[in-house]
Design a protein around this nucleic acid. Structure first.
Lengths: 145, 145
DNA sequence: CCTTGACTTGAAGTTGACTTCAACTTTTAG
DNA sequence: CTAAAAGTTGAAGTCAACTTCAAGTCAAGG
Protein backbone atom coordinates (compact mmCIF):
# COMPACT_ATOMS: atom_id res chain seq x y z
CA UNK A 1 0.00 0.00 0.00
CA UNK A 2 1.22 3.46 -0.73
CA UNK A 3 0.60 6.43 1.47
CA UNK A 4 -2.49 7.54 -0.38
CA UNK A 5 -4.06 4.13 0.07
CA UNK A 6 -3.41 4.15 3.80
CA UNK A 7 -4.76 7.66 4.01
CA UNK A 8 -7.91 6.69 2.18
CA UNK A 9 -8.51 3.60 4.26
CA UNK A 10 -7.96 5.24 7.62
CA UNK A 11 -8.90 8.82 7.08
CA UNK A 12 -5.54 9.86 8.43
CA UNK A 13 -4.01 12.45 6.13
CA UNK A 14 -0.78 11.62 4.36
CA UNK A 15 0.98 14.46 6.13
CA UNK A 16 0.03 12.90 9.43
CA UNK A 17 1.28 9.52 8.32
CA UNK A 18 4.64 11.00 7.47
CA UNK A 19 4.66 12.80 10.77
CA UNK A 20 3.89 9.57 12.59
CA UNK A 21 6.64 7.80 10.77
CA UNK A 22 9.09 10.51 11.67
CA UNK A 23 8.05 10.13 15.29
CA UNK A 24 8.52 6.41 15.06
CA UNK A 25 4.88 5.51 15.57
CA UNK A 26 4.58 3.65 12.32
CA UNK A 27 7.07 2.25 9.86
CA UNK A 28 7.10 1.84 6.16
CA UNK A 29 8.40 -1.44 4.85
CA UNK A 30 10.43 -0.07 2.02
CA UNK A 31 10.31 2.22 -0.92
CA UNK A 32 8.92 1.92 -4.37
CA UNK A 33 11.20 4.36 -6.04
CA UNK A 34 11.01 7.01 -3.42
CA UNK A 35 7.48 6.28 -2.37
CA UNK A 36 6.85 4.59 0.92
CA UNK A 37 5.21 1.24 0.94
CA UNK A 38 3.20 0.22 3.99
CA UNK A 39 2.33 -3.25 5.20
CA UNK A 40 -1.35 -3.87 5.98
CA UNK A 41 -0.49 -4.11 9.67
CA UNK A 42 -0.09 -0.38 9.72
CA UNK A 43 -3.86 -0.11 9.67
CA UNK A 44 -4.07 -1.85 13.03
CA UNK A 45 -1.31 0.28 14.38
CA UNK A 46 -3.13 3.38 13.35
CA UNK A 47 -6.26 2.10 15.02
CA UNK A 48 -4.24 1.55 18.15
CA UNK A 49 -2.87 5.05 17.93
CA UNK A 50 -6.35 6.44 17.50
CA UNK A 51 -7.50 4.45 20.49
CA UNK A 52 -4.66 5.76 22.56
CA UNK A 53 -5.41 9.29 21.54
CA UNK A 54 -9.03 8.89 22.38
CA UNK A 55 -7.90 7.62 25.75
CA UNK A 56 -5.90 10.76 26.27
CA UNK A 57 -2.45 9.33 25.74
CA UNK A 58 0.13 11.56 24.19
CA UNK A 59 1.87 10.34 21.10
CA UNK A 60 4.91 9.68 23.23
CA UNK A 61 2.91 7.44 25.50
CA UNK A 62 1.43 5.61 22.58
CA UNK A 63 4.89 5.27 21.18
CA UNK A 64 6.09 3.63 24.36
CA UNK A 65 3.37 1.03 23.99
CA UNK A 66 4.20 -0.13 20.54
CA UNK A 67 7.81 0.71 20.66
CA UNK A 68 10.14 -2.24 21.34
CA UNK A 69 10.01 -3.22 17.73
CA UNK A 70 7.24 -5.19 16.18
CA UNK A 71 3.91 -5.69 17.80
CA UNK A 72 2.34 -3.68 20.58
CA UNK A 73 3.74 -4.37 24.02
CA UNK A 74 1.34 -2.79 26.33
CA UNK A 75 1.98 -1.28 29.71
CA UNK A 76 -0.95 -2.64 31.65
CA UNK A 77 -0.36 -0.41 34.61
CA UNK A 78 -0.37 2.66 32.48
CA UNK A 79 -3.55 1.48 30.83
CA UNK A 80 -5.23 0.93 34.15
CA UNK A 81 -4.12 4.29 35.36
CA UNK A 82 -5.40 5.93 32.23
CA UNK A 83 -8.71 4.14 32.59
CA UNK A 84 -8.97 5.46 36.13
CA UNK A 85 -8.20 8.89 34.90
CA UNK A 86 -10.82 8.65 32.25
CA UNK A 87 -13.37 7.48 34.77
CA UNK A 88 -12.60 10.44 36.96
CA UNK A 89 -12.92 12.67 33.97
CA UNK A 90 -16.25 11.12 33.14
CA UNK A 91 -17.48 11.91 36.59
CA UNK A 92 -16.52 15.51 36.28
CA UNK A 93 -17.96 15.75 32.82
CA UNK A 94 -21.21 14.34 34.02
CA UNK A 95 -21.38 17.01 36.65
CA UNK A 96 -20.60 19.65 34.08
CA UNK A 97 -23.21 18.32 31.72
CA UNK A 98 -25.83 18.35 34.43
CA UNK A 99 -24.76 21.82 35.32
CA UNK A 100 -25.08 23.01 31.79
CA UNK A 101 -28.48 21.45 31.38
CA UNK A 102 -29.63 23.08 34.50
CA UNK A 103 -28.28 26.41 33.44
CA UNK A 104 -29.98 26.00 30.10
CA UNK A 105 -33.32 25.13 31.62
CA UNK A 106 -33.28 27.33 34.68
CA UNK A 107 -36.13 29.82 34.56
CA UNK A 108 -34.48 32.33 36.85
CA UNK A 109 -34.11 35.61 34.99
CA UNK A 110 -30.58 36.13 36.11
CA UNK A 111 -28.48 33.20 37.04
CA UNK A 112 -27.28 35.17 39.95
CA UNK A 113 -30.72 34.52 41.38
CA UNK A 114 -30.70 30.77 40.88
CA UNK A 115 -29.50 28.86 43.86
CA UNK A 116 -28.73 25.72 41.92
CA UNK A 117 -26.59 27.64 39.57
CA UNK A 118 -24.83 29.22 42.47
CA UNK A 119 -24.20 25.80 43.83
CA UNK A 120 -22.84 24.68 40.52
CA UNK A 121 -20.53 27.62 40.33
CA UNK A 122 -19.33 26.88 43.77
CA UNK A 123 -18.67 23.30 42.82
CA UNK A 124 -16.87 24.51 39.75
CA UNK A 125 -14.78 26.79 41.85
CA UNK A 126 -13.94 23.96 44.18
CA UNK A 127 -13.73 20.99 41.93
CA UNK A 128 -12.55 22.39 38.68
CA UNK A 129 -9.98 24.76 39.99
CA UNK A 130 -8.32 21.95 41.82
CA UNK A 131 -8.57 19.34 39.15
CA UNK A 132 -5.22 17.90 38.34
CA UNK A 133 -6.03 15.70 35.37
CA UNK A 134 -3.59 16.33 32.61
CA UNK A 135 -4.61 17.82 29.33
CA UNK A 136 -6.30 14.75 28.04
CA UNK A 137 -7.47 15.32 24.56
CA UNK A 138 -10.64 13.56 23.55
CA UNK A 139 -11.11 13.42 19.91
CA UNK A 140 -8.60 13.62 17.15
CA UNK A 141 -9.57 16.83 15.51
CA UNK A 142 -9.88 15.90 11.93
CA UNK A 143 -10.44 18.79 9.60
CA UNK A 144 -10.78 16.91 6.42
CA UNK A 145 -12.20 13.54 7.29
CA UNK B 1 -8.87 42.68 46.29
CA UNK B 2 -5.64 42.89 44.47
CA UNK B 3 -4.49 40.42 41.86
CA UNK B 4 -2.55 38.28 44.30
CA UNK B 5 -5.59 37.90 46.49
CA UNK B 6 -7.73 36.77 43.59
CA UNK B 7 -5.00 34.41 42.50
CA UNK B 8 -4.75 32.91 45.95
CA UNK B 9 -8.49 32.50 46.34
CA UNK B 10 -9.06 30.92 42.97
CA UNK B 11 -5.80 29.23 42.16
CA UNK B 12 -5.73 31.10 38.88
CA UNK B 13 -2.27 32.58 38.38
CA UNK B 14 -1.90 36.33 38.18
CA UNK B 15 -0.60 36.08 34.64
CA UNK B 16 -3.78 34.30 33.66
CA UNK B 17 -5.90 36.93 35.33
CA UNK B 18 -4.17 39.65 33.37
CA UNK B 19 -4.59 37.59 30.25
CA UNK B 20 -8.29 37.18 30.96
CA UNK B 21 -8.66 40.86 31.53
CA UNK B 22 -6.95 41.63 28.26
CA UNK B 23 -9.37 39.27 26.55
CA UNK B 24 -12.29 40.97 28.23
CA UNK B 25 -13.35 38.00 30.31
CA UNK B 26 -12.98 39.79 33.58
CA UNK B 27 -12.67 43.41 34.55
CA UNK B 28 -10.88 45.23 37.28
CA UNK B 29 -12.83 47.95 39.02
CA UNK B 30 -10.05 50.46 39.16
CA UNK B 31 -6.51 50.94 40.16
CA UNK B 32 -4.80 51.40 43.44
CA UNK B 33 -1.84 53.28 42.18
CA UNK B 34 -1.20 51.11 39.18
CA UNK B 35 -2.39 47.90 40.74
CA UNK B 36 -5.67 46.47 39.66
CA UNK B 37 -8.43 46.17 42.17
CA UNK B 38 -11.01 43.47 41.68
CA UNK B 39 -14.55 43.32 42.98
CA UNK B 40 -15.52 40.12 44.76
CA UNK B 41 -17.84 39.26 41.87
CA UNK B 42 -14.81 38.36 39.85
CA UNK B 43 -14.59 35.15 41.84
CA UNK B 44 -17.95 34.04 40.49
CA UNK B 45 -16.95 35.05 37.03
CA UNK B 46 -13.82 32.99 37.26
CA UNK B 47 -15.86 30.06 38.47
CA UNK B 48 -18.11 30.51 35.48
CA UNK B 49 -15.11 30.63 33.20
CA UNK B 50 -13.73 27.46 34.76
CA UNK B 51 -17.08 25.81 34.32
CA UNK B 52 -17.20 26.81 30.72
CA UNK B 53 -13.73 25.52 30.13
CA UNK B 54 -14.54 22.24 31.78
CA UNK B 55 -17.51 22.07 29.47
CA UNK B 56 -15.25 22.49 26.50
CA UNK B 57 -16.11 26.05 25.64
CA UNK B 58 -13.39 28.17 24.18
CA UNK B 59 -12.60 31.42 25.90
CA UNK B 60 -14.36 33.19 23.08
CA UNK B 61 -17.51 31.23 23.71
CA UNK B 62 -17.31 31.90 27.39
CA UNK B 63 -16.78 35.52 26.59
CA UNK B 64 -19.94 35.60 24.54
CA UNK B 65 -21.86 34.36 27.54
CA UNK B 66 -20.81 36.98 29.96
CA UNK B 67 -20.23 39.65 27.44
CA UNK B 68 -22.99 42.23 27.10
CA UNK B 69 -21.70 44.06 30.09
CA UNK B 70 -22.40 43.08 33.63
CA UNK B 71 -23.83 39.76 34.60
CA UNK B 72 -23.76 36.54 32.64
CA UNK B 73 -26.27 36.35 29.85
CA UNK B 74 -26.34 32.79 28.90
CA UNK B 75 -27.02 31.24 25.55
CA UNK B 76 -29.25 28.37 26.57
CA UNK B 77 -29.14 26.74 23.21
CA UNK B 78 -25.40 26.68 23.18
CA UNK B 79 -25.40 25.25 26.66
CA UNK B 80 -27.78 22.50 25.69
CA UNK B 81 -25.74 21.73 22.63
CA UNK B 82 -22.60 21.60 24.70
CA UNK B 83 -24.26 19.34 27.20
CA UNK B 84 -25.25 17.01 24.39
CA UNK B 85 -21.73 17.07 23.13
CA UNK B 86 -20.39 16.26 26.53
CA UNK B 87 -22.80 13.39 26.89
CA UNK B 88 -21.66 11.98 23.58
CA UNK B 89 -18.11 12.40 24.69
CA UNK B 90 -18.86 10.59 27.91
CA UNK B 91 -20.23 7.71 25.94
CA UNK B 92 -17.11 7.45 23.90
CA UNK B 93 -14.89 7.82 26.90
CA UNK B 94 -16.73 5.08 28.66
CA UNK B 95 -16.09 2.80 25.74
CA UNK B 96 -12.45 3.76 25.73
CA UNK B 97 -12.16 3.20 29.45
CA UNK B 98 -13.68 -0.22 29.15
CA UNK B 99 -11.39 -0.94 26.29
CA UNK B 100 -8.36 0.08 28.26
CA UNK B 101 -9.40 -1.97 31.24
CA UNK B 102 -9.86 -4.95 29.06
CA UNK B 103 -6.53 -4.43 27.42
CA UNK B 104 -4.93 -4.10 30.83
CA UNK B 105 -6.53 -7.24 32.14
CA UNK B 106 -6.49 -9.38 29.04
CA UNK B 107 -4.43 -12.50 29.58
CA UNK B 108 -3.64 -13.05 25.94
CA UNK B 109 0.12 -12.94 25.46
CA UNK B 110 -0.08 -10.77 22.42
CA UNK B 111 -3.02 -8.51 21.96
CA UNK B 112 -3.05 -9.56 18.38
CA UNK B 113 -4.45 -12.82 19.72
CA UNK B 114 -7.24 -11.32 21.78
CA UNK B 115 -10.54 -11.10 19.97
CA UNK B 116 -11.96 -8.50 22.32
CA UNK B 117 -9.00 -6.31 21.73
CA UNK B 118 -9.37 -6.78 18.03
CA UNK B 119 -12.96 -5.75 18.33
CA UNK B 120 -11.97 -2.71 20.29
CA UNK B 121 -9.42 -1.73 17.71
CA UNK B 122 -11.98 -2.14 15.02
CA UNK B 123 -14.36 0.06 16.94
CA UNK B 124 -11.59 2.55 17.36
CA UNK B 125 -10.89 2.51 13.68
CA UNK B 126 -14.56 2.99 12.92
CA UNK B 127 -15.73 5.22 15.69
CA UNK B 128 -12.76 7.30 16.53
CA UNK B 129 -11.56 8.01 13.08
CA UNK B 130 -14.93 9.39 12.18
CA UNK B 131 -15.62 11.29 15.34
CA UNK B 132 -16.36 14.87 14.63
CA UNK B 133 -16.54 16.35 18.11
CA UNK B 134 -14.51 19.48 18.24
CA UNK B 135 -11.40 19.77 20.32
CA UNK B 136 -13.18 20.01 23.58
CA UNK B 137 -10.69 20.49 26.35
CA UNK B 138 -11.55 18.98 29.66
CA UNK B 139 -9.58 20.31 32.48
CA UNK B 140 -7.73 23.54 32.80
CA UNK B 141 -4.21 22.38 32.93
CA UNK B 142 -2.85 24.03 35.99
CA UNK B 143 0.83 23.65 36.42
CA UNK B 144 1.17 25.40 39.69
CA UNK B 145 -2.07 24.88 41.53
C1' DC C 1 9.67 14.76 -24.99
C1' DC C 2 7.34 16.93 -21.82
C1' DT C 3 3.74 17.93 -18.79
C1' DT C 4 0.90 16.32 -15.05
C1' DG C 5 0.13 14.47 -10.80
C1' DA C 6 1.58 11.83 -6.87
C1' DC C 7 5.08 11.54 -3.96
C1' DT C 8 9.47 13.23 -1.43
C1' DT C 9 12.02 16.47 1.93
C1' DG C 10 13.13 19.83 5.78
C1' DA C 11 11.59 23.92 7.55
C1' DA C 12 8.35 26.94 8.98
C1' DG C 13 3.57 28.09 10.23
C1' DT C 14 -0.91 27.18 12.96
C1' DT C 15 -3.97 27.09 17.11
C1' DG C 16 -5.46 28.11 21.92
C1' DA C 17 -4.38 29.19 26.22
C1' DC C 18 -1.23 30.56 28.58
C1' DT C 19 3.73 31.66 30.60
C1' DT C 20 7.93 34.01 30.62
C1' DC C 21 10.81 37.88 29.87
C1' DA C 22 12.91 42.37 30.22
C1' DA C 23 12.40 46.67 31.75
C1' DC C 24 10.07 49.52 34.67
C1' DT C 25 7.05 51.62 38.66
C1' DT C 26 5.11 51.29 43.41
C1' DT C 27 4.36 49.85 47.79
C1' DT C 28 6.13 48.22 52.05
C1' DA C 29 9.26 46.71 55.65
C1' DG C 30 13.27 47.83 58.16
C1' DC D 1 15.85 56.38 52.84
C1' DT D 2 16.48 52.40 50.66
C1' DA D 3 16.16 47.90 49.08
C1' DA D 4 13.28 44.03 48.42
C1' DA D 5 8.86 42.39 47.10
C1' DA D 6 4.99 42.80 44.24
C1' DG D 7 2.80 45.03 40.61
C1' DT D 8 2.83 46.88 35.65
C1' DT D 9 3.56 46.54 30.42
C1' DG D 10 4.03 44.63 25.52
C1' DA D 11 6.31 41.28 23.16
C1' DA D 12 7.91 36.95 22.60
C1' DG D 13 8.12 32.08 23.89
C1' DT D 14 5.89 27.39 24.89
C1' DC D 15 3.39 23.08 23.98
C1' DA D 16 1.28 19.27 21.13
C1' DA D 17 -0.04 17.65 17.14
C1' DC D 18 -0.31 18.66 13.03
C1' DT D 19 -0.50 21.37 8.39
C1' DT D 20 1.45 24.03 4.89
C1' DC D 21 5.09 25.45 1.99
C1' DA D 22 8.76 25.58 -1.34
C1' DA D 23 11.51 22.98 -3.94
C1' DG D 24 12.63 18.81 -5.78
C1' DT D 25 12.14 13.65 -7.74
C1' DC D 26 9.85 10.32 -10.44
C1' DA D 27 6.60 7.34 -13.35
C1' DA D 28 3.34 7.40 -16.78
C1' DG D 29 0.31 9.18 -20.48
C1' DG D 30 -0.39 11.90 -24.69
Amino acid sequence: MDIAEVAKRTGVPASTLRYYEKRGLIHSVGRDGLRRRFAPGVLDQLALIALGQAAGLSLDEVHAMLSPDGEPNIDRQLLSAKADEIDALIKRLRAVSNGLRHAAACPAPSHAACPSFQKLLKAAAQGIFNTQAEPTRKAPRRTRA
